[in-house]
Nucleic acid binder design. Structure first.
Lengths: 265, 265
DNA sequence: TTGCTCCTCACGTCACGTGAGGTGGC
DNA sequence: TTGCTCCTCACGTCACGTGAGGTGGC
């Protein structure tokens, strides 16, 4: 048995606003069971109430409407569950990021942590296996994880050992527009240059370097220190920023290398 | 000592995108230290780096820009801290709501919980002290808390005991537009009608009633059950929905009363 | 019949992102 | 000098909310 409700009654029953309901009709997310041809009045079926509740819950959890649509369109439980689980994992992750940011904020507000030491270094040409791709700002971490996994797999199957820590190059565009080319690389011993692996040589570059100790999402501190230091007493140069991910014993350590003109501080 | 950075360098140093920086300039949140009159080129001072970092952190935490502005504008530490603490508390609360919603979702997806029993009831005229105000959807809970506190204080100072559980009336507009008049009331004994307190009489209304057991933000289940039930076998009537907040021993219990025409089920 | 409900545009909001089309600086 | 950086509009995005101005139903 089912019955029809006006949009106002349906709004009351589902706790969705009338404006939201009309919007969901416009974008074909939740179409009224009947629409009066003459007046345009929308009429919803009581059988649509559970769907509307689902939509509301998901939207309250800030699931994008396209994902909600996927959940509703999924006829099989597996697809449905997969989308939901994916979203919950995303939320969980955002939650952890939020927690981290709060503590980071604390550091920032209570003095900004220790002053970071800037060092000058002339990087030698480095032979490496590398992958380059356009990556969006928020996708870097998973992309890097994937890239390094692949590169190491590659090396392992060729029986070669890496000769240094994993690293990445970030173009100016990546910082300017929050998306752009990123290169993940794993250094090779110079002794093993060409073995059927597409290796590439990173050029020699003079860098100002800061070592960042701690989680990846607090690395902005290191950039800030470097950027300030260089502007105040060196001359910046063109070229990508390089990060070296030092092998982690306890704390994560990352070298941030910002290209400069050869002019020791 | 400070130096100037181009917008691109400043973007790299602060991890803000160029578009974001230009936007912050437009809305006067972060104005470049210098702007070239001829070319319009923006130049930022290294001394602006810490401010930019603060802005980025707060925005990452989804603090609205107006609040960020308040933090930056606050010269005294107390105001500053107050705004930050307020935001952190808001976040904490949203976090808890999220957790609750996730578990509620689970209930919804795994069968929707127990079927709710709908009961017909002819409410008697009720004398009560009441407060009415236009309230936004998301502000109801705190508003009600405040209103009941005041009403009870009122009664206490007059030496009167409430004769029933706290309750509220919600207009149609409140459900339609997610903002509208809400009335909080505390019932009085009929024997004590006029004592200098502005009392008011809630009219006799026939209601369909469902008792919701559990947290307030899962009450949509009760509304859905009621709305469906009424549409399918009764005739809805005009007038506000009434909620009675039954005294909580363990679980919160709320009666949701939806006006209907006199027609016992 | 009156007033409440519902309707459709059209535009606003928030915090930027996305081009287009063009100029400046090393 | 070439190309990269930077500039300013103008418009798009996301998920609705906000009126304006008007009609339909009990």
């Amino acid at each position: 048995m089912s019955a029809l409700l006006t949009i106002g009654e349906f709004a009351r029953a589902t706790h969705l606003s009338i404006k939201a309901l009309r919007h969901y009709d416009d974008i074909a997310l939740l179409t009224p069971a009947e629409v009066d041809a003459a007046s345009g009045y929308r009429h919803y079926s009581t059988s649509q109430v559970p769907t509307a509740l689902l939509i509301r819950r998901f939207r309250d959890l800030e699931m994008p409407i396209d994902q909600v649509r996927q959940v509703l369109d999924a006829n099989d439980r597996d697809t449905r569950d997969a989308v939901i689980v994916a979203h919950l994992e995303q939320m969980q992750q955002r939650l952890e990021e939020t927690q981290a940011l709060v503590s980071a904020l604390h550091t920032l507000l209570t003095g900004g942590g220790a002053t970071l030491a800037v060092e000058f270094r002339h990087a030698q040409p480095t032979t490496a296996v590398a992958m380059t791709e356009r990556v969006a700002w928020d996708d870097v971490e998973p992309w890097l994880g994937d890239a390094f996994a692949r590169l190491h797999e590659h090396l392992e199957s060729a029986g070669i050992d890496a000769s240094g820590p994993d690293g990445a190059l970030y173009t100016s565009e990546f910082f300017d527009a929050h998306q752009g080319a990123v290169t993940a690389f794993v250094p090779l011993p110079d002794a093993v240059p060409l073995l059927g692996i597409e290796a590439q040589v990173l050029p020699a570059v003079p860098y100002a370097v800061v070592v960042h100790t701690g989680p990846f999402d607090e690395i902005d501190q290191a950039y800030a220190a470097l950027g300030t230091y260089i502007a105040e007493r060196m001359i910046g140069a063109e070229g990508p920023v390089r990060e070296n991910y030092l092998p982690a014993d306890e704390d994560e350590r990352t070298e941030v290398c910002w290209p400069v003109l050869r002019s020791e501080p």
